[in-house]
Design a protein around this nucleic acid. Structure first.
Length: 903
RNA sequence: GGGCGCUUAGCUCAGUUGGUUAGAGCACUUCCUUUACACGGAAGGGGUCGGGGGUUCGAGUCCCUCAGCGCCCACCA
């Protein structure tokens, strides 16, 4: 197919699936150096990323699109660099999310609850759900162009990964780093499971602060019906009064000192509890007296421990009042609050209530208010693990990008609390501990048949499952075969980058580091790259309630995957949020189309006639310029990639391709190709620059670059000019990453000369536009070029073509004795251009224009003279000073020429 | 209460060893269907880089300070 036969607009719809299938069939997603193959070379460096596994039943959202785009870019770049590159894909069982989804579905369609259905049947249904919908998300990830090795796809509940979880748990158990016991945990009454501290979100909300009387227990000697002796207490959750086991005051509080050691009466239910002294109580806040509810408040729990107070749980798993709540038993926590308060009011125990802003703990998943409760749970002792993980970042074995997150990480790792890992769910890895009737625990790698302690055959497995993050914490190595020393594990582990959102730095990244160090004795990855959140086009946080949800699938349908990816990748910086929306994606679709058409042009240029064998002339100024620009671009992109500045790199390639290559070089190339002698080197330069540009762009926009490159490659090979490319593999995805290099016979540093030509062309165009000269009209021009006569004479054809001049009425002179009549003059540094625009010259107008330009030039001269007279000349780098001197000379030139014109 | 980030053109944002006249996309104005591309081309308009102070020959970039916005962490009822 030649250039002309390609459609005018890039058809991403048919191209993308075809290209993806070609890549996959070609085995390009697999590491080229595979430890499972006989020709394996252990000295080749691997580059590995483990995908942050999406929820197996999830659907693609922009967060995934961002993750996949960035990781695919990293992967493709390293693949082209020659690393044995592996991107391990997979999905997460996502305990709570998936279970909720299936539970709701069954309830809706069959009106059966999970409890009614039973554990075994429910799990069977959930697996069916997984098989049915589990492929959805991975197919959507394929659409994004993700070059993962799908043969190595893993799922957290796979037998292999489940074995890894089992190994990890038993390891901790045997090491004594895991324990079970009743502790105050965050309980989600809706989900009916414990959740970890991280899964609780604190929201500032308006609540009420209730003030009431804690009546002193009358002492027999001074019973008085009228005396009202009480301690005023304030609370946000009056229902927890039912669980109070003390009232605490500050030991130095003169108001309450006399009550310390006495008893007060719990309202309505009449229990006697002590008044204790503790410095934790703030005298200034509230009433200065604090009710202690150890069963339902973390601070109170700590105080109760200190003072050996009893702990009363007054809520059940559904957050209804239990038997400890007397007459309120069975009432929902909020009903109990209302009713108890009403009863207290009736009893004269209420002082007042007022509005109060406070932080309310809500479940990250369900949104309901989380209740601190005493419950029997499994915990991981975190101190030693956290210390090791902290050190790994502190001593630089693991680098976090951007660096500022290291501080956040330290802060969190230095204040860790034991991790509650048990969940009262069914969908997940069941805790591998069995109990016998005597209460012995058996924790083994293989399912036991009898109690390890007493031999009892009557053993029962723990009902709970593990926190999803426990298994995903093993992801970088469990996916590679651990705990077995598989070839993959040995070669690809530790992995290279961990790329994910900063929002799961603690949830996931920190836990992977702890797990990796503890189980494998190695860091799981050496670099953590954190990306930001995706926001809508106006920088607003995307939320369903706001109705500004942006669906990546719709964007891909409308504008193509490459356009979406380029939007996501360009203009985003590490750790910062990125805006995505149709307008931005459309702009990038246009860029993709630009590449397509530039490709079409180059391919048709090549296909014109055979390239091989023709004589080659010297490179032109334009050839040298575009090549120099490209070399600079390659260096800049490399530097930016090394610094993880992918957005910056993308932006620079965009500008090069559109502004330098398409707008200038291609237009000049059209001229150069008219000259038979120049055709070969022009086409070669076109092909080379396009080739390099496509390589640089491939990690960003893989589909269109692969497609265009395929056509380009065939055209080049058909023309016989095999020497043009560094390498011609079957696909761009495995082509070599560009490195800066010089061409034989090519002149470096012609940039300034070319820029003068650009300035001349722009000035002429500008004047034409001002004078409303039809673009199609070719006009005459005379140039007085002074010292640049040689350069301009050489570039005459370019100037004539790009500025729309009439070749036969164009001349270049060293100087002009007489200023051409009826002409408009332009001054560009040392060059004067005269455009004889008869009838269009307005002397007053011209004068005003020159005066304005002169003023500008003079202000520059003034500024530069001042600058060069200052310490700048002594202290700044010599090259920089010279540059400013040259500039000053240029402005002086211009000013002088303009002055002459004004005479 | 602690920590972090942001404030640059009308809008959304780039700008990483401090060094030309501070950039892009969108929007806006004028012109053009020229044989790669109207998903295009050409030419324009638009910014005291949040305020103040400092370091420096030189600051959007470094330091201090103030203001506004946002995020994270934290046990004051």
């Amino acid at each position: 197919m030649t250039g002309q036969e390609l459609p005018k607009a890039y058809d991403f719809k048919s191209t993308e699936p075809r290209i993806y299938a070609m890549w996959e069939a070609g085995g390009f997603f697999k590491p080229h150096n595979d430890p499972n193959k006989p020709d394996f070379d252990p000295t080749v460096k691997p580059f590995v990323i483990s995908i942050p596994p999406p929820n197996v039943t999830g659907e693609l959202h922009l967060g995934h699109a961002l993750t996949m785009s960035v990781e695919d870019l990293m992967i493709r770049y390293h693949r082209m660099k020659g690393y044995s590159t592996l991107w391990v894909p997979g999905t997460d069982h996502a305990g709570i999310a998936t279970q909720l989804m299936v539970e709701r579905d069954i309830l809706k369609n069959e009106e059966v609850t999970r409890e009614e259905m039973g554990r075994e049947e429910f799990l069977k249904r959930t697996w069916e759900w997984k098989y049915k919908y589990g492929g959805l998300i991975t197919n959507q990830i394929r659409r994004l162009g993700a070059s993962c090795d799908w043969d190595r796809e893993r799922f957290t509940l796979d037998p292999g990964l489940s074995r890894a979880v089992r190994e990890a748990f038993v390891h901790l158990f045997e090491k004594g780093l895991i324990y079970r016991g009743p502790r105050l945990i965050n309980w989600s009454p809706g989900l009916k499971t414990a959740v970890s501290d991280l899964e609780v979100e604190y929201e500032e909300e308006e609540a009420r602060l209730y003030y009431f009387k804690y009546m002193l227990k009358p002492e027999t000697s001074e019973v008085s019906e009228t005396s009202e002796v009480y301690i005023p207490v304030a609370t946000i959750r009056p229902e927890t009064i039912l669980g109070d086991t003390a009232v605490a005051v500050h030991p130095d509080d003169e108001r309450y000192k006399k009550f310390i050691g006495k008893k007060v009466i719990v309202p309505i239910i009449g229990r006697e509890i002590p008044v204790i002294a503790d410095e934790y109580v703030s005298m200034e806040f509230g009433t200065g007296a604090l009710k202690i509810t150890p069963g339902h408040d973390p601070n109170d729990y700590a105080i109760a421990h200190k003072h050996n107070l009893p702990i009363i749980s007054m809520l059940d798993k559904e957050a209804k009042v239990n038997e400890n709540g007397g007459r309120y038993k069975g009432q929902d926590r909020f009903d109990a609050r209302k009713n108890l308060w009403a009863d207290m009011k009736a009893a004269g125990l209420v002082i007042k209530e007022e509005k109060y802003m406070t932080t309310i703990p809500r479940s990250q998943r369900g949104g309901e208010i989380v209740e601190p409760m005493i419950s029997e749970q499994w915990f991981v002792k975190i101190e030693a693990l956290g210390k090791a993980a902290l050190d790994a970042v502190k001593d630089g074995r693991i680098k976090i990008v951007p660096e500022r997150f290291e501080k956040t990480y330290y802060n969190w790792m230095e204040n860790l609390k034991d991790w509650c890992i048990s969940r009262q769910l069914w969908w997940g890895h069941r805790i591998p501990v069995w109990y016998c009737p005597d209460g012995h625990m058996t924790c083994t790698r293989e399912d036991p048949t009898e109690c390890a302690a007493c031999g009892s055959k009557d053993i029962r497995q723990d009902d709970d499952v593990l926190d999803t993050w426990f298994s995903s914490g093993l992801w970088p190595f469990s996916t590679l075969g651990w705990p077995d020393e598989t070839p993959d594990y040995k070669y690809f582990y530790p992995t290279s980058y961990m790329e994910t959102g900063y929002d799961i730095l603690f949830f996931w990244v920190a836990r992977m580091i702890m797990s990796g160090l503890e189980y494998t004795g190695q860091i799981p990855f050496h670099t953590v790259y954190l990306h930001g959140l995706v926001r809508d086009e106006n920088g607003e946080k995307i939320s369903k309630t706001k109705g500004n949800v942006v669906d990546p699938l719709i964007l891909m349908d409308e504008f193509g995957t490459d356009a979406l990816r380029f939007n996501i990748l360009v203009g985003s910086t590490p750790g910062n949020d990125t805006n995505v929306g149709p307008k931005k994606v459309e702009a990038n679709r246009n860029f993709v189309n630009k590449i397509w058409n530039a490709g079409r042009f180059v391919i048709s240029a090549i296909s014109g006639q055979p390239l091989a064998g023709s004589e080659k002339e010297e490179y032109t100024l334009a050839d040298s310029w575009i090549w120099a620009k490209l070399q600079q671009l390659i260096r800049d992109v490399e530097r930016n990639f090394q610094n993880f500045q992918y957005g910056q790199a993308g932006q620079q390639i965009y500008e090069f391709v559109w502004s330098d290559f398409a707008d200038w070089y291609v237009e000049i190339a059209k001229e150069q190709m008219k000259d038979a002698g120049r055709r070969m080197q022009t086409v070669e330069t076109l092909a080379r620059v396009l080739d390099m540009s496509l390589r640089l762009l491939h990690p960003f926009i893989p589909f269109v670059t692969e497609e265009v490159w395929g056509h380009l490659r065939r055209a080049v090979l058909d023309s016989g000019a095999t020497h043009v490319f560094d390498d011609t593999p079957h696909a761009l995805i495995v082509a070599k990453w560009p490195e800066p290099r010089e061409l034989e016979g090519w002149e470096a540093d012609k940039t300034a000369d070319f820029e003068l030509i650009q300035e001349i062309v722009r000035s002429i165009r500008n004047l034409r536009a001002e004078k409303n000269v039809a673009p199609s009209k070719r006009i005459a021009a005379q140039i007085a070029a002074g010292a640049r006569t040689g350069l301009l004479t050489e570039q005459a054809q370019v100037i004539v073509a790009l500025a729309g001049l009439d070749h036969s009425l164009f001349s270049i002179h060293q100087s002009l004795a007489d200023k051409p009549a009826d002409s408009v003059a332009l001054v560009i540094g040392p060059v004067e251009v005269y455009l004889p625009l008869a009838g269009m010259v307005d002397l007053a107008n011209e004068k005003a224009r020159f005066e304005k330009e002169l003023k500008e030039a003079e202000s520059h001269i003034e500024r530069l003279e001042k600058l060069l007279a200052s310490d700048f000349a002594n202290k700044a780098p010599a090259a920089l000073v010279q540059k400013e001197r040259d500039k000053l000379a240029g402005y002086k030139d211009t000013a002088q020429k303009i002055k002459a014109q004004l005479k």
